[in-house]
C-alpha cells in the first residue's frame, strides 16, 4: 500500500509514468482550469490553502480510500497559488487490482475533497490581470 499527498506551488507538471505491482487498473484524473467562470472569461484561478492542514486532509482521505476500496496505491496532488487557464491544478492517481474499485474510489475521493479539504479558489478575471500587468 502506497499513499502520497502533496500541495505544490503553481500548475501541476505532466505526470510521469506510474507502475504499481499487482495493479490491473491505473486511473489518473486531472482537474483543469477552465477559461470561463460564471460566464466571465478568466486568466486562471488562484488557490488558497490552509497549510499544513490541506495536505494532511488529502493524505487522510487517501488513506481512508485505500482502506474502504482495498486500493493498492493513491497519489494526490493539488496546486497552491495561481494556475492559468487550461493548466492542471489537481491530479488524483489510483491503483487497484480491478477497475470497479478504482472508479468508485475516484468519485468518492473527489466528492469528499470538495467538502472537507481546506482549499479555496478565486477566479482571476481577465480585466484584473490586465490591471496587475500595467
Amino acid at each position: 500500500m502506497s499513499i502520497e499527498a502533496a500541495i505544490l506551488d503553481g500548475p501541476l507538471q505532466p505526470a510521469p509514468s506510474w507502475q504499481v505491482d499487482g495493479a490491473g487498473a491505473l486511473l489518473c484524473f486531472e482537474g483543469m482550469v477552465r477559461p470561463v467562470e460564471a460566464g466571465e472569461p478568466i486568466t486562471g484561478l488562484s488557490y488558497e490553502t490552509y497549510d499544513p492542514m490541506a495536505e494532511r486532509e488529502l493524505e487522510r482521505l487517501a488513506r481512508e480510500a485505500v482502506e474502504r476500496f482495498a486500493l493498492l496505491a493513491v497519489k494526490v496532488e493539488h496546486s497552491r497559488g495561481f494556475v492559468p487557464s487550461f493548466a492542471c491544478s489537481f491530479r488524483l492517481r489510483i491503483a487497484s487490482s480491478h477497475r470497479k474499485e478504482a472508479l468508485a474510489a475516484m468519485d468518492w475521493f473527489i466528492d469528499r475533497m470538495k467538502q472537507a479539504v481546506p482549499i479555496w479558489k478565486r477566479p482571476i478575471p481577465v480585466e484584473q490581470s490586465q490591471e496587475t500587468a500595467r
Binding site: Y47, Y50, P52, M53, F90, M113, A116, P118, W120
Partner: peptide, 29 residues
Amino acid sequence: IAVNHQAVPPDQPVHENDELAVIGLVSGG
C-alpha cells in the same frame, strides 16, 4: 472549526494558545 489543523466537534475543548480556523465553503479541485 479546526483546532491546531484538525476539524473538531463542537464540544472539543479550546485553550488560549490553540490555532483556530474556520473551515467551510471549500472549493478545491
